[in-house]
């Protein structure tokens, strides 16, 4: 089932609140530039290939977080009605929620955020994960089997 327009907006705002985009970042902090990650697109790809139960879980997670301002006492509005700072604070609260299902579904979307975020080549480069390779430091590669080298 295709994502609805409100779902796409929720996905973008929820995922962006896990790792808020910014044009100015502090030293060592990994932040995407505004619009650098298409979270809804990556979500749709995984959702398409997931098992039926997982699809249900992913959609339930989005709806649960989208409506969480209502049941966390933030008023009658969806996550899109909150400022980005408020959304990030809300996600922190849900990540440590006393209800296991709330925690797990929030974590499920954090996993998705990480996959989409680090799936962007330039963001991955900025994360320093591949620093050794990027710096051009020669990495000694074994190109022969040990048994061949011994001959």
């Amino acid at each position: 089932m295709k994502l609805t327009s409100p779902e796409k907006k929720w996905i973008q705002s929820i995922f962006e609140s896990f790792a808020p985009p910014s044009t100015i970042t502090e030293e060592g902090e990994l932040a995407p530039a505004p619009g650098e990650v298409d979270y809804a697109d990556d979500f749709a790809v995984l959702n398409r290939h997931a098992t039926p139960v997982a699809k249900l879980g992913l959609r339930a997670a989005v709806v649960m977080i989208a409506t969480s301002p209502v049941w966390t006492g933030r008023g009658l509005k969806s996550v899109n009605g909150l400022s980005r700072e408020e959304r990030t604070e809300l996600l922190g609260e849900l990540s440590a929620h006393s209800n296991a299902a709330v925690r797990e579904l929030t974590w499920l979307l954090k996993v998705q955020t990480g996959m989409a975020l680090l799936g962007v080549d330039d963001i991955r480069r900025r994360s320093r994960y591949d620093k050794e390779r990027d710096s051009g430091t020669p990495i000694k590669l074994r190109i022969k089997k040990k048994s061949e080298s011994a001959k």
């Binding site: 609140s17 808020p20 502090e26 932040a31 996600l91 922190g92 975020l117 994360s127 320093r128 591949d130």
Partner: peptide
């Protein structure tokens, strides 16, 4: 992409940890 989800925090806290992936 998978390591990111194992790092604690959301927002700035998470982003600082993701900034030192190596």
């Amino acid at each position: 992409e998978l390591l990111a989800a194992r790092l604690p925090g959301v927002g700035k806290e998470w982003q600082k940890r993701m900034g030192m992936m190596d």
